[in-house]
Design a binder for these strands. Structure first.
Lengths: 139, 139
DNA sequence: TATTGTTATACTCTATAACTATA
DNA sequence: TATAGTTATAGAGTATAACAATA
């Protein structure tokens, strides 16, 4: 390795994440969805969630949810249904549920391929390590 | 966890990486450097590297190196010295080397803190797992 | 013929501020 | 008083195309 940064965990984390994102973006392209769109469908599938709810789960700000949801609505994948006179529930349409099934097939295979690249001895330790770093960040 | 994505390694990887980036950005702020600036100084410290060389190591395109180097040059941290009539070596100034020493102090502590958050049993497996994912992406 | 440095440009992602209306 | 949805906007970060000059 000529790269002096390769042994820094933080740097390796960034590079691994961006490599992963690039590959998943490619795999989702046939569905005409970006990663963020697919994530939104997965979270919204829980049902009765508002735009703000989904944003909190995915760490996306309210203001940035608007164009994302507009796009999915224009694609016929979600609808907005009033919960009361202030809040809207984001509901998957039949087309949205069908697209989500395709998303799950692709992401399921992707996560499997991803883990397969990690040598056996390290594999089981990977997700717990990531979750420790992710959770610690909530402080 | 209410988040249905939390158990997906790809998603956890993305969230851990962005949490890490946010924290490192904060820690470097007192040096008036962004992560990308600090990375550049570290790589350029090898000496006799052109802008294109550094870009290849860090996966930054030639065109995007220009404003980054201009900024570091304006800050008095690097200079451009002709290698031949076409290429320029990026050289750290004395101020650049001093700033780099501060960068190393901060990033060294940061990487240490990062690893300390990973439970003992998983810690040693983390970097090898990341490198496996990163390298596999070069295919 | 390939590479370097550069300019210009566009697109995505994200962050902030502000506003209206409702809980 | 806090929250939901929205609009507008600004700043990063990144990608592509093109060009002149040199290896």
């Amino acid at each position: 390795m000529t790269d002096p940064l390769a042994r820094l965990p933080g740097y390796a984390l960034r590079r691994a994440a961006s490599a992963m994102m690039a590959e998943l973006t490619e795999r989702l392209a046939p569905l005409a969805l970006r990663i963020i769109d697919a994530s939104l469908l997965m979270v919204a599938d829980a049902g009765s969630m508002t735009s703000s709810d989904i944003g909190r789960v995915l760490d996306i700000q309210r203001a940035n949810m608007v164009p994302l949801l507009n796009r999915l609505e224009a694609a016929g994948l979600i609808t907005r249904q009033p919960l009361d006179r202030k809040s809207m529930a984001i509901i998957l349409t039949p087309a949205g549920r069908a697209r989500l099934a395709e998303v799950r097939a692709i992401t399921g295979q992707f996560e499997e391929d991803l883990m397969a690249r990690i040598p056996d001895a390290h594999r089981a330790h990977f997700l717990p390590a990531l979750q420790a770093l992710w959770s610690a960040a909530d402080d």
